[in-house]
Nucleic acid binder design. Structure first.
Length: 273
DNA sequence: TAGAGCCTGAGT
DNA sequence: ACTCAGGCTCTA
């Protein structure tokens, strides 16, 4: 499931192929996957536009087009954006085909949760849901003090707080569990019980784990692929996610699996306090 | 702040 | 046939 490292990998692998290319045509196989702005059809906003770059904000991809248009894409759980240099017949779950000057981009999504929206570029930052997102965890501005500030006076579990995109943008179930293991803090701890030292350890762990995920080009636990259809290899570095019942790789204690904030959560009761 | 709904496929 | 996977939005 694409979280920050996976979305960043899609951004990089896609940008190499599509930057500076014009979108010649769009085929909407399942039109619900896209949405225009103020009654304007998605195709009208996008066809004939040139792709000038791709940014990322949290788990959102921002595909910048000329004429002040931005495509905001969210993969949710099983969405993919694939680039093909040559014509490719759409696969079973392909919902949108972008025909470029050279090659095609296919948006596919088994679960049909992902969406691509076309918006005027100034609005895409000020008026959309992006505006409410928390800080980018890998930017210099993200410090332990910022993390503490984002937790504020909340009285929720660390698990719930770190999954909340308004607190911090880009983490999902995999990287939250891995960061908490790395920091040695239990996912059940309430955010208002953390010491300064624990906040610092958590901040460091979040940055280390996310950067390691990017370096490994993501985690392909189930469905994730980059724009070239390639898997990432961070799965083999996972310490806790998907390992409930197995021995902790650090201390040997059986990893505990529970449901927290509505999500399956795995942690080591001995290493994480 | 907890739960439903959106979806389909894999696993039991 | 049923459970689970889970990001996000909306409702109670």
């Amino acid at each position: 499931m694409p979280e920050l490292p996976e979305v960043e990998t899609i951004r990089r692998t896609l940008a190499i192929h599509v930057t500076d290319l014009m979108i010649k045509n769009i085929t909407l196989i399942w039109p619900t996957a896209v949405c225009g702005w103020e009654g304007k059809a998605f195709e009208d906003l996008v066809i004939g536009r040139r792709i000038i770059g791709i940014d990322r904000r949290g788990k959102y991809l921002l595909i910048r087009l000329d004429e002040e248009i931005t495509l905001i894409a969210h993969m949710r759980m099983t969405g993919r954006l694939n680039y093909y240099a040559d014509h490719q017949e759409p696969e079973k779950h392909t919902h949108v085909v972008f025909t470029l000057e050279q090659g095609e981009v296919h948006f596919s999504d088994v679960r049909k949760f992902g969406r691509i929206q076309a918006l005027p570029t100034p609005l895409s930052v000020s008026e959309s849901s992006l505006r409410k997102l928390g800080p980018e965890p890998l930017e210099h501005e993200f410090t332990p003090a910022v993390l503490k500030d984002r937790f504020g006076t909340k009285k929720v579990s660390l698990k719930a707080a770190l999954l909340d995109q308004h607190v911090l943008a880009g983490m999902g179930n995999i990287y939250v569990d891995e960061s908490l293991f790395q920091a040695g803090i239990s996912p059940e701890r309430r955010v208002d019980t953390l010491s300064e030292e624990e906040i610092s350890k958590l901040h460091q762990a979040i940055q280390t784990v996310l950067q390691a995920g990017i370096d490994a080009q993501g985690t392909s636990f189930r469905d994730y692929r980059d724009a070239n259809g390639e898997k990432g290899w961070f799965e083999q570095a996972l310490q806790v996610y998907g390992r409930g019942g197995e021995p902790c790789q650090v201390c040997g204690q059986t990893l505990e699996r529970l449901r927290l904030a509505g999500r399956t959560t795995v942690y080591c009761p001995r290493c994480q306090k």
